[in-house]
Amino acid sequence: MTTSTRFQILVCDGPSCGLCLNSEALLEHLEQRIAASDSLRDRVTAINLTCFGRCDDGPNIMVRPLAEGEDGDCEPDIDAIEGVRGLYLGMDTERIDRVLREHCEGGQPIEDWVEEY
């Protein structure tokens, strides 16, 4: 079953994730997968976030639900992501695909991978 929840996916673009671990390639992969999916295209947005502070674990992403009327193209304040159970560490394209399927389409975080920020 597909959820109707709108999500924002934040991709760490800090020095470690961005420069050393090429998180930009993950953002591009996300954007392509989202654009190609009828079930994700109008509900999921992926953007860069400055840094999660978990540099040794990267590249990292966060999947967070958007509030009614909230713009998914804007980087949120840190207060908006504190306590969110949606942080995924050590991501690659295969893991991204699973997060899109299970968390964004199915509405269920991947319990073995997800952490609270």
Rank of each mutant, 00 (worst) to 15 (best):
M1C: 14
T3M: 04
S4L: 12
T5E: 12
F7V: 01
Q8L: 01
Q8I: 02
I9Q: 00
L10F: 05
L10N: 06
C12G: 10
C12M: 09
D13V: 09
D13I: 08
D13A: 13
G14E: 04
G14T: 02
P15Q: 14
P15N: 15
P15A: 12
S16P: 13
S16F: 12
C17F: 04
C17I: 05
C17M: 07
L19A: 13
C20S: 13
L21M: 09
N22V: 06
N22R: 02
S23F: 02
S23N: 04
A25S: 11
L27F: 02
E28L: 15
L30A: 01
E31W: 08
Q32E: 14
Q32K: 12
R33K: 08
I34W: 00
A36I: 06
A36P: 05
D38Q: 14
L40Y: 02
L40R: 01
D42V: 05
D42G: 06
D42M: 08
R43D: 01
A46C: 02
I47T: 01
L49H: 07
L49N: 06
C51H: 09
F52V: 07
F52P: 02
G53W: 10
G53E: 08
G53Q: 06
C55D: 10
C55A: 10
C55L: 07
D56S: 15
G58F: 05
P59H: 02
N60D: 09
P65S: 12
L66C: 02
L66N: 04
A67I: 06
A67D: 05
A67H: 10
A67P: 07
A67Q: 11
E68K: 04
G69P: 06
G72C: 03
D73A: 13
D73K: 14
C74I: 10
C74Y: 11
E75T: 04
P76I: 03
P76H: 05
P76G: 03
D77Y: 07
D77S: 05
D77I: 09
I78A: 12
D79E: 14
A80Y: 10
E82A: 11
G83Y: 01
V84E: 03
V84H: 03
R85H: 10
L87Q: 04
L87D: 08
Y88K: 05
G90K: 05
M91K: 03
M91F: 01
D92F: 02
R95N: 02
R95L: 04
I96M: 05
R98A: 12
R98H: 12
R98M: 13
L100I: 08
L100H: 04
E102P: 10
E102A: 11
H103L: 13
H103K: 10
C104F: 07
C104N: 03
E105K: 13
E105C: 12
G106L: 15
G106Q: 15
G107T: 11
Q108A: 15
Q108G: 15
P109Y: 10
P109R: 10
D112R: 12
D112Q: 15
V114D: 12
